[in-house]
Design a protein around this nucleic acid. Structure first.
Length: 644
RNA sequence: GCGGUCGUAGCUCAGUGGAUAGAGCACGGGUCUUCGGAACCCGGGGUCGCGGGUUCGAAUCCUGCCGACCGCGCCA
């Protein structure tokens, strides 16, 4: 299953024998094997001589030469020679044997190639997306969904039992505001894309309220002759008026109607708060209304994400009564812990104290000077805060899983840390250990900031539509004989793949600026490029029936060796990507493999190979590349069409 | 003020202790009677934010500055 590991074992054996001969009594230090800078220098390389330099009191270069001289490769099937270069030991493979091992392994394992299973499979819950059900998913949410889903896929392939979870934030003021607007409109059915329609209601209510407020401020300031205040109000008004124009353009009647109704209401804010309270108190009519509105949005989310092949095993509503009860229990436990202090009637958790007592900073790798701010649990008026519900929710997660990964924006870092600390305070320190905040940064738009409150965003749907349309145009140029449906199918695989790839391939902690050109770039270093390479492999394979026995020792060209080496690296790349939770490792790998394959393709003609045995061997490479590219894309949730 | 994250080519980004720091875009030049050019090859372009330290070896680890963003609510 892992040919690279076999190769490494043989290297290790040779090294040990050589060291025993050349420097008896010396232990072989633990050293990682690395990849030489270029394939001509061998398949594997060891820097072990640098570590031996001190104990042996010799230069690494000298040691490497001595060890190389003492290595006898006759006992090894995979290694044909070892070279000392600048203190490194470079291992050269017997291409016939190594290619045979690698290519046969890949082809025998086929769909399972690379997916080494964990020795300790766990139940893992991945919570991702969890977007507020009041606006369409935008390109920033999509980063969350796509990263979360790729993590879930990676863990699943590694043999873990994965639960994909969505938390519905239905308790906030924003949901109440949206439902309020929807009621004012007479509870109509959504028109067009439901989430966008809902998002327009939400933003309209908000914008209208703000315009009223600043209009009032402006009048007062003018009356009193406050120049500075007047100017400030004027600027705010302009901002909201621009937003209003955008909303009108999207759904003229929503904004118009609401802007006729709302100014006639004495205190809309009070009514929104009242609606929120009624919902919290489980008033049956309100529950129906809110849930209906939320459902419109969630159905839309499921559809957009479904297009991307992203789905959930469970949706849970924050409003479910269980949490409130569980939150009470958590509060009791926290009080008993003794870490809760009182301040003007409020109850507050002293996080830093907990961290000190349980040595959490050492345990979780935080800086010793990192002071953790205190956390308010209960207000002075006795009402509880969200944190308690979040804790209860966290505890609930662990009744379904041993490990929890929360894909949540980077701005929640402190809140997530406080949550883990609070869990430690009530004797659930292992829940803190096994809970990981998988943080990611914003996606910005060039020039402006996205804002749900102003209804200003690039929606996921828009991006997907444009990507698929562009892909369709390209597909049409090349596969005119296919039916429209087939072309559409391929265009979707390509367009969706392109969007996923751009979001997966950059470090989650890097702020990115959304760039249409880059998202729709179908050239090298994109999903379509990898998919295209895959289609090329399929195309070659389609043209032949392999009958001749391959002679792998004829794969003497450096590009062929390079591909064999790279193919052998896939299983460990996969394992590293899962263990480090870095799906980007796999986009980089797949791009690299596609790149090397195209380079091979340009000069090493497969079907016109010099001998039938060489052709068979090259076909084996092509087939192995096909399998590996497909598997790498598959584990990222990107499909690989056979033609495009 | 305190804490976190980021800073690598003109632009967008890889590279989490190893050899000469790599891709794509953009720019300049080439390949093609093709196993599908969404391709391949060559080229220019870098004091890895700045300074110190650890190490045989640092873009990578530690530390001090500088800059950008985000947190530090009796909001959710």
């Amino acid at each position: 299953m892992n040919p690279l590991a076999q190769l490494r074992e043989e290297c290790q054996k040779l090294l040990e024998e050589s060291l025993e001969k050349a420097y008896p009594e010396t232990e072989l230090p633990q050293a990682k094997y690395s990849e030489p800078p270029n394939p001509e220098m061998g398949a594997l390389s060891s820097p072990v001589c640098f570590q031996l330099a001190r104990p042996l009191r010799q230069s690494p270069v000298k040691i490497a030469q001595t060890l190389a001289k003492n290595i006898d490769t006759s006992s090894s099937t995979l290694i044909v020679s070892v070279e000392a270069v600048n203190g490194y030991l470079n291992f050269h493979t017997d291409i016939g044997n190594y290619a045979s091992l690698v290519l046969k392994t890949v082809r025998a394992k086929d769909k399972e190639y690379g997916f080494l299973k964990s020795a300790n499979p766990e139940k893992v819950m991945v919570e991702h997306t969890s977007a507020n059900p009041i606006s369409p998913l935008h390109i920033g949410n999509a980063r969350n969904s796509i990263l979360g889903d790729s993590l879930a896929r990676l863990l699943d392939k590694r043999g873990h039992d994965v639960i994909r979870h969505f938390l519905v934030n239905d308790m906030g003021r924003q949901v109440a505001m949206t439902t309020y607007g929807w009621k004012l409109l007479g509870k109509p059915e959504p028109v067009g894309t439901a989430e966008l329609w809902i998002g327009t209601i939400y933003a309209s209510v908000n914008v209208i309220n703000e315009i009223q407020r600043y209009t009032k401020d402006l009048r007062e300031a003018e009356k009193e002759g406050w120049v500075y205040e007047a100017q400030e109000a004027q600027e705010e008004l302009e901002k909201f008026n621009i937003a209003a124009d955008g909303l009108r353009k999207r759904y003229a009647d929503i904004y118009e109607k609401l802007s006729e109704i709302i100014p006639g209401i004495e205190d809309p804010t009070a009514e929104i708060v009242a609606l929120n309270t009624a919902y919290e108190n489980n008033d049956p009519t309100t529950v129906n209304e809110v849930r209906q509105q939320v459902k419109y949005c969630l159905d839309g989310f499921e559809k957009s994400l479904g297009d991307l092949d992203i789905s959930f095993d469970s949706f849970d509503y924050e409003s479910d009564l269980v949490w409130r009860q569980a939150a009470e229990e958590v509060l009791e436990a926290l009080k008993k812990s003794g870490y809760v202090i009182k301040d003007q009637g409020a109850q507050i958790l002293d996080c830093d104290w907990v961290a000190r007592d349980f040595k959490l900073k050492e345990r979780w790798g935080l800086h010793p000077k990192h002071e953790i701010p205190r956390l308010v649990l209960v207000r002075g008026d006795g009402t509880t805060l969200y944190t308690l519900r979040d804790m209860a929710y966290s505890i609930w997660k662990f009744s379904h899983a041993e490990r929890v990964i929360n894909v949540i924006g980077q701005e929640q870092t402190l809140a997530q840390l406080q949550l883990r600390i609070a869990l430690a305070a009530i004797d659930k320190i292992e829940m803190g250990d096994n809970q990981r905040h998988y943080a990611y940064e914003f996606v910005n738009l060039p020039g402006i900031k996205m804002s749900g409150r102003l209804g200003r965003y690039v929606t996921l749907n828009e991006v997907l539509e444009r990507a698929v349309a562009l892909a369709y145009g390209e597909v049409e140029k090349r596969t005119s004989e296919l039916s429209d449906e087939e072309k559409q199918n391929i265009a979707e695989m390509v367009g969706y793949g392109a969007v996923k790839y751009t979001l997966i391939s950059v470090d989650p902690m890097k702020q990115v600026t959304f760039d249409w050109e880059k998202a729709l770039n179908f050239e090298t270093n994109s999903a379509p490029f990898i998919q295209y390479s895959h289609a090329r492999t399929c195309n070659i394979l389609k043209r032949v029936d392999e009958t001749t026995e391959a002679d792998y020792s004829q794969l003497t060209h450096i590009k062929e060796r390079d591909l064999v080496n790279l193919l052998a690296r896939f299983p460990e790349t996969f394992v590293d990507a899962v263990e480090e939770l870095q799906p980007a490792d796999l986009t980089a790998y797949a791009n690299n493999l596609a790149d090397k394959f195209n380079s091979f393709y340009a000069t090493q003609n497969v079907l016109k190979a010099e001998t039938p045995e060489l052709m068979a061997a090259r076909l084996a490479i092509v087939d192995a590349v096909r399998i590996t590219l497909r598997n790498a894309l598959d584990v990222l949730g990107i499909k690989a069409p056979e033609r495009m």
